[in-house]
């Protein structure tokens, strides 16, 4: 069977910085693939290359269409969910209408999807007014317009609270069970372990490791630490953690890091050595 997505020697440079360096792998149809790696490892760049919205060397084929040459054909075959659904001005109904028309589908389908994701009551509400969980469900709705076989999700749960995160995960499992190919990034190991068939571990633009979740060397007792910091401390914290060998991920007013349970105190050590004040933190043991 033809792979749903094929990455063939994909390289991408920003000036002298190699964001992607000779990345090659395949995503079999119906599989769920997680892209794993620290900030700046190249996950988002890879997604952008796949969507054909940025130039790159090498070749990416999505259901046989070249991302570089036939970006629109590729994008019509991919449902894309961003980390945060942007704050569009128009109400939900109009957004569904807009994306339906851009994807060339009947917006009645959108109505069914809104119903399925329990968003029908938001039809006339501005996107801005929705909660985080609702916005991500809306993003999913829009991504599923035209019933694409491939879903691409870039940190879909990063900004969600625990219960919304769980809900979204349940939906994603459903979608996977429907036979869709899913490519997603996440920095929560629990999510990766639960949803992914295969993990592609990217570091510094290269595929460091790839395989079934269970077979991966990464596999160990991990904890997920969410550090709440002042806005001004976020970038020094990321720098300090990176130079201490961790893979931090910075989000809204917080830095997340997944570490082996045995090394969790080293995170705080590195931060205090760099004079970064931690205002609060939460700890989730990954199961």
């Amino acid at each position: 069977m033809e792979p749903a997505i094929q990455f063939d020697h994909v390289s991408k440079r920003f000036g002298s910085f190699a964001a992607l360096d000779d990345v090659s792998f395949e995503v079999p149809s119906g599989q769920s693939i997680a892209l794993w790696g620290s900030n700046g490892a190249g996950k988002t760049t890879l997604i952008r290359c796949m969507l054909g919205v940025t130039a790159f060397r090498g070749e990416i084929a999505v259901e046989g269409f070249s991302s570089a040459k036939h970006g629109k054909d590729v994008r019509v075959r991919i449902g894309y969910v961003p980390q945060v659904m942007p704050l569009f001005d128009p109400p939900v109904g109009e957004m569904v209408d807009l994306i339906s028309r851009l994807r060339g589908v009947d917006s009645a389908e959108g109505l069914r999807l809104l119903e399925r994701f329990e968003l029908k009551q938001t039809l006339n509400k501005p996107v801005k007014s929705l909660s985080g969980g609702m916005r991500q469900r809306l993003a999913l709705t829009l991504a599923l317009l035209g019933n694409p076989h491939i879903l691409v999700l870039d940190e879909p749960t990063a900004n969600l609270d625990a219960s919304s995160q769980k809900d979204l995960l349940t939906l994603l499992h459903q979608l996977k069970d429907e036979g869709r190919t899913i490519v997603f990034t996440s920095h929560r190991w629990s999510e990766v372990r639960s949803l992914a068939d295969t993990v592609v571990h990217l570091e510094e633009g290269r595929v460091k490791e790839m395989g079934a979740v269970s077979a991966l060397a990464l596999q160990q007792d991990l904890v997920f630490i969410r550090l709440v910091l002042d806005e001004s401390s976020i970038s020094p914290a990321s720098t300090a953690l990176t130079s201490a060998g961790f893979q931090p991920y910075s989000g809204d007013g917080s830095v997340h890091v997944t570490v082996a349970d045995a090394h969790k105190m080293d995170v705080f050590g590195a931060l205090s050595a760099a004079d970064v004040r931690v205002r609060n933190f939460t700890l989730e043991v990954e199961e």
């Binding site: 109904g93 109009e94 209408d97 339906s100 009645a108």
Partner: peptide, 9 residues
């Protein structure tokens, strides 16, 4: 004018 009947309502 909504594209295909959504939107307004």
């Amino acid at each position: 004018r909504p594209g295909a009947g959504l939107g307004g309502a």
